[in-house]
Design a binder for these strands. Structure first.
Lengths: 244, 244
DNA sequence: ATGCTTATTTGTCGGACCAGAACTGGTAAA
DNA sequence: TTTACCAGTTCTGGTCCGACAAATAAGCAT
């Protein structure tokens, strides 16, 4: 799934010796951003100007720019040039959406346990900060599950429901982590579900969660939410037994 | 994002579904990897062969390759060619170590709250799964804090202590998330600390946590761990007041 | 203001050369 | 003969150059 354990950390060539010409330019551009104090939204010099400044060919500069773009540090539009951005989170997001990672039983258990820790674990704080608008929006998101067309769309809505739920915490870090994990969570959500399952069971479970929230009933909220997270897991066990 | 004017999404007529030529090639290479069933370690065709196969110029193929490389999907060595890898995690890693993001008060609070949810929230399961070897290793990691040379190293050891702690859960997802967040957490840890602080206060707090673990005292463990995570936060408040 | 023109910039292409690893073949040594 | 070694050749990625197409911001004309 997500990846193997962390590999040996490679020492990032410090300041001195630089690898390829492209790496040098990447470093120089980053220095330029730092030295010039450029902030998000500011523009970078044109490609040709960078060529001149760093005495590199345009190809080299472009490949360097590709790296910065891949890292979500700059955004470049034809004619207008490159501007500084910070989409690192959404880049990390794309990192994990690459090859089709299969959802093993352990992956399923781990991810759901993680979500349980966050969503159920922070239940008290969620209710504490809960506003009526939150309840309304959660309900509105959930009803969208009824008019869903395909699995992909359904899991997206399912995910946005839980994202909206944790957003109540006002914790940007958690939102970022959820964004990074989104591709995996989507697969988890689709595991063993049909379009109909989303429209009936998932919808009902979500609605129960929303009701508990509206009533500010902490215990009921935790109970329903935990059960909701567990449902898929039960199916997983059955599937395992069936194939075993 | 900005005021309207995101170029109207070009309708992906049937097959192509692509933006720039480079994006197309990236897509095609990914498809090639999938279709061919290439695994980590396998080799990709040479650049010139990819040019021929996808009817793209070598520059385009190279820029596409830069993206795959930046995403940690391929590793390319001169004269040898490109081989499939999976360094996505360490890439995501580097994503966050790019520009030195300042640690705002809110960032600090959010990250620590997140860690609290995980580490304190899973305290019962940690103790449940705790083995004597875990206690020994945690202690051994902590004593390394005593012989530390600089802040960077100290925060690394501090981090590895907490990483080892959550590793007891046996939840790979949590380990992955911690790996991704490492750069941020390191900054958090260094916030308002000196080398001496690590050697004395942090060491003592960790040791208290280990003792509580060794005694299988859940409440004490949670209490000490939560306090430990809070210490830096208190300092942050003082600093805020001082500068206000 | 509105619409057209222009100039600039990115996107893509094809070709070229280099340095160095990988492959080849032959020769000398065992 | 077999093995080991060495030089030449081939192949590949890394870099550079020049050119054209496409897109669009900016200036110009109406």
């Amino acid at each position: 799934m997500m990846a193997g354990r962390t590999k040996a950390l490679r020492q990032p060539d410090a300041v001195p010796a630089a690898g390829s010409a492209v790496d040098v330019v990447v470093r120089q551009i980053r220095e330029l951003i730092a030295d010039e104090g450029l902030k998000v939204g500011d523009s970078l010099p044109t490609e040709r100007e960078l060529c001149a400044r760093f005495s590199a060919s345009r190809n080299t500069v472009r490949e360097a720019m590709r790296i910065l773009k891949a890292y979500g540090m700059v955004e470049v539009r034809p004619k207008v040039g490159a501007t500084i951005t910070d989409n690192r989170m959404s880049r990390a997001f794309e990192l994990f959406s690459f090859n089709t990672m299969e959802v093993s039983r352990k992956t399923f258990a781990d991810v759901q346990a993680f979500r349980d820790l966050i969503e159920v674990g922070a239940a008290d704080r969620i209710i504490e900060r809960l506003g009526d608008r939150d309840v309304g929006e959660l309900h509105r998101i959930n009803v969208r599950l009824s008019g869903i067309q395909d699995l992909q769309e359904a899991s997206e809505v399912d995910f946005s429901f839980h994202l909206r739920l944790v957003s109540i915490l006002g914790n940007d870090t958690i939102l970022d982590v959820y964004s990074v994990m989104k591709p995996i969570v989507l697969r988890i959500m689709q595991k063993g579900k049909t379009r109909r399952t989303f429209k009936t069971q998932t919808y009902a479970e979500h609605e129960g969660v929303v009701d508990a929230l509206a009533a500010r009933d902490l215990l009921s909220f935790q109970y329903r939410l935990r059960n909701h997270l567990m449902t898929g897991f039960k199916f997983f066990n059955e599937e395992m037994e069936a194939s075993a």
